[in-house]
Simulated assay, not measured.
Amino acid sequence: MTAGPAYSGDVTVGGPPARRELRGLRVTKVAVGAYDNNAYLLECTATGERLLIDAAAEPDTLLDLIGPAGLGRVLTTHFHFDHWGALAEVVERTGATTLAHPADTVGIPVPTDTPVRGGDEVRVGEVLLRAVHLVGHTLGSLALVYGEPGGAHHVWTGDALFPGGVGKTHGEPALFTALLDGVEAGLFDVLGDDTWVYPGHGRDTTLGTERPHLPEWRERGW
């Protein structure tokens, strides 16, 4: 199932969320905070179970998005402060279980209930997501991949992959190489061009749009 005409993936802080209906999974994207972070609410359409990816900022906005249906779990893609600014309040108000990679839990000021490592399964009701560990932007950055039944793959990349390049690696060549190698091996080498990418900031993209530019990214070093 492809995106309907109402979904573009383009959201702005203070603006309405964007909703996308996939087979088995409802995706709602909202932009929050001073750093224009994206937060994603994933809901299993069969069971109503829900996962929030990055309680980044504006707890009232996120709680309004969650609404009375509640929230089961929240995953933090990495420890940078702009991705967990609303985490404490969202957890307190919803009782949600927290998930993050063990390498990044030290930088998240809310205890992690469930550590998630590369290759682990993250279930949202009947929906199965696969975790991909991507070292470079941080040591514990996570992406989540969903294979839509009979359709394309979908991947939530945090700050590891954006339109136009991988995430910042703070001027460290070894970290840049690790991140680009990981993105190529963990995403581009195993997923098709129609894979939809939902990043931690800004607009969506696809692997097919970005794939031709991989050599350019490696040559420029960022």
Rank of each mutant, 00 (worst) to 15 (best):
E172P: 02
C44V: 06
A46I: 11
E216M: 03
L139H: 14
V106L: 07
V183R: 07
C44K: 10
V74A: 12
G125T: 13
T138I: 09
G147D: 11
G221N: 07
T206M: 00
L75M: 13
R220V: 06
A174M: 08
E121Y: 06
T47V: 08
D193E: 12
A100C: 07
D64V: 07
T77F: 00
T138R: 10
V106C: 08
V135S: 13
G200L: 03
E49K: 07
T195C: 04
V183S: 10
G147P: 02
D104G: 07
P115T: 10
E184T: 11
L51P: 05
D194T: 08
H78G: 11
H137L: 01
W217Q: 05
A56Y: 05
R130A: 11
P163Q: 08
G182W: 01
P111R: 03
A57Q: 15
A39Q: 06
P102E: 09
S141A: 11
D181A: 07
F188Q: 09
H170Y: 09
V197C: 09
V122Q: 04
G171W: 00
A103M: 12
A86I: 03
E184K: 09
V127Q: 09
L142M: 05
A143K: 02
G118M: 06
T97P: 00
D181T: 07
A103L: 14
E92Q: 05
E43V: 07
G67P: 05
V122I: 03
E126Y: 03
A103I: 09
E58W: 05
R20C: 09
A174F: 01
V183I: 08
R218S: 06
G24T: 11
P163N: 08
H83D: 14
V135H: 15
G95S: 01
A57N: 15
K168A: 15
G95P: 03
T195I: 04
G4A: 11
F79S: 13
R50M: 05
L187I: 10
I108H: 02
N37H: 12
E210G: 01
V135A: 11
H83F: 09
Y7R: 07
D193G: 10
P199F: 00
A57K: 15
D82K: 14
G9K: 10
T77M: 12
A56R: 13
W217C: 01
G167D: 07
A143N: 05
R26S: 15
L99S: 10
D64K: 09
T77I: 06
V30E: 10
E126Q: 12
L175N: 12
L128F: 04
E121C: 00
K29M: 11
Y40T: 06
G164E: 00
F79P: 13
L142N: 08
V74I: 10
N38G: 05
R50D: 04
V32S: 09
G107C: 04
D10L: 13
R19D: 15
A55E: 10
G33T: 10
G118A: 06
V110H: 03
W196N: 12
L139C: 13
G107N: 13
E58L: 11
L99A: 06
H154S: 03
H101C: 08
E219G: 08
G164P: 02
R50A: 03
F81T: 13
Y146L: 05
A3N: 11
R50I: 05
G221A: 06
V145F: 02
Y198Q: 12
D159S: 01
G67A: 08
A86K: 06
R203K: 14
A86T: 11
L175P: 02
L51I: 10
G33W: 00
P5R: 14
